[in-house]
Amino acid sequence: MATLIEVLVSGLALGAIYALVGLSLNVVYITTRVVSFAQGDIGMLVVAGTLWLGDHGGRPLAVDLVLALAGAAVVAVLVDLIAVRAIRGGVGVAAYGWIVSTLGVSIVIQNSTAMWFGTESRGFPHVLPTGTIELFGAVIPTERLLTVAVVAALILLLALAVAKTQWGRVARALADNQPIAAACGVPTNWIRTSVVLVGAALVGVAAMLSAPQTFVNAYIGTSLLLNGMVAIVLGGLGNVRAGLVGGLVLGVANAIAGRYLDSTLVPYVPFVLLLVWLIFGADVRGKLASARAARRRDPVGVTA
């Protein structure tokens, strides 16, 4: 029982981080219809940048974190401007041009970071208080519980912002119909930029929560991204609440596998989950999608 609780909490904490990355991807996708393959690296920049700043000047950790976040956010906006918006209108490659260009961005960010960060993996200071508590006989690091709490708080906050504020409304309107939103007086470019900034902040926090448990090097962005992508695919692209569930499912699955399966099989879990869901979950996805489509205007066009 105790181990089960430990495993579950560990899984939930992991899953919360994946869900946060997934949230970051979803928020941007909802407004721009693009999933940046460089999003994980933006998160990496936050933690790598914090460490670098820590090496150069005796500021408190919190200040370094904020500075690194700001820097990463600027990079995210530049990436959107250069590698995504510029691609949109091609013939033949239009559909997936941004996959290739964001992959390129990922390569650039990872390897240029390696140049100033170095090749050694480094530890990251704990951002949340360490220590343990006891729960039903299980020993649980408080950090894990706090991670779940922080992520839950962020998601709630963002859900509130998206649902109740004018910003959230116009961002959703933008996703529904950009030209008409503009015709209603919405400054579409600014809104898009703000969404990219929020996305960067979210993935930055995810990196901050994940790094203390593992390590930091120039390449951790890839695993952050992968887990986030699996989370949103499980939940359905664009579906924020389901992305949460997807992340938690993945986290718990990983934790359970880690505890009860042969260690060589553990790394396969996310990919097998992803493939199984993508390929065999098609019917379920289809039903979900048509249920959502029924609430929207018909995509084929009624005018005759």
Binding site: I82, G90, V93, V100, G104, N111
Partner: peptide, 17 residues
Amino acid sequence: PNLNLVIYGALLIVVMI
């Protein structure tokens, strides 16, 4: 080697644009 890769990534972006 890292610069190599940076250039190659940048090339990819430039080519797509």
